Amino acid sequence: MSGVVPHGHPEELAARSTAPQPAPPLPAPLMRATGFLSFYDRFATAPMLVVFTREEGVSLSSAVQLVTAYVLLYALGQPAWGLLGDRLGRLKVLRLALAGTLIGSVATIAAPGFVALLVIRAVTGFFVGALFPSMLTVVGDSYTGAARAREISSLQTFTALGTTVATLAAGALAVWLDWRVVFGMTAVGAGTFLVLLRRVKLPSAAGVRHDIRRAFTAWPVWLYLLGLLEGGILLGILTYIVPALERDGLSTAVAGAVGATYGAGIIGGAYLAKRVVARAGRTVMIAIGATTLFVAFLLASLSQGVPALTATAVLIGTSNAFLHSSLQGWATDVAPAARATTVSFFVSSAFLGSSAATGLTGGLTGQGYGAIFEGTCVATVVLAVLAVGSHALWFRRRGG
Rank of each mutant, 00 (worst) to 15 (best):
Q65I: 10
L293F: 07
A63T: 03
L302F: 08
G35P: 06
T137S: 13
T312K: 12
P27L: 09
M185S: 15
A166H: 08
P133A: 13
S301A: 06
R121V: 11
V195F: 14
I316Q: 02
L118T: 02
T332Q: 04
I266L: 08
L177D: 15
S390N: 09
R90I: 14
Q65L: 12
T159M: 02
Y143V: 00
I212Q: 15
G232S: 13
K201R: 14
T159F: 06
Y40F: 12
V138Q: 05
T361M: 07
T101P: 14
T124C: 11
Y143N: 04
Y74D: 02
T292Y: 11
A244P: 00
L83N: 08
G57E: 05
I288K: 05
V295F: 07
L102T: 01
T342H: 10
L60C: 01
R282E: 12
G8C: 04
R213G: 06
Q328L: 12
V284P: 03
E230F: 12
R150P: 05
Q367S: 13
S134P: 07
L37T: 08
A296R: 00
G207M: 09
E12N: 15
D86C: 04
L155M: 02
V254Y: 12
A146F: 02
G35D: 05
K92C: 13
V67N: 00
R42Q: 06
G249Y: 09
T361Q: 04
L30A: 15
Q156V: 07
W330F: 05
D211I: 11
F43L: 10
G317C: 03
L228D: 04
R95W: 08
F193R: 09
S59A: 08
E11F: 15
S17K: 06
A311F: 12
L360G: 05
T291Q: 08
S326M: 13
V139E: 04
L30E: 10
V93E: 00
G184Y: 05
L84I: 00
F345I: 08
T108H: 14
T283Y: 14
G353K: 00
P336E: 11
E11D: 13
V388R: 10
K201I: 13
L235F: 11
G104S: 10
V182T: 09
A244S: 14
D211T: 13
E374G: 02
A206P: 11
R247Q: 03
L168D: 06
Q156H: 12
I266S: 00
A44H: 00
D141Y: 01
M135R: 03
T217Q: 13
G370M: 01
L197C: 09
F52A: 09
G256N: 07
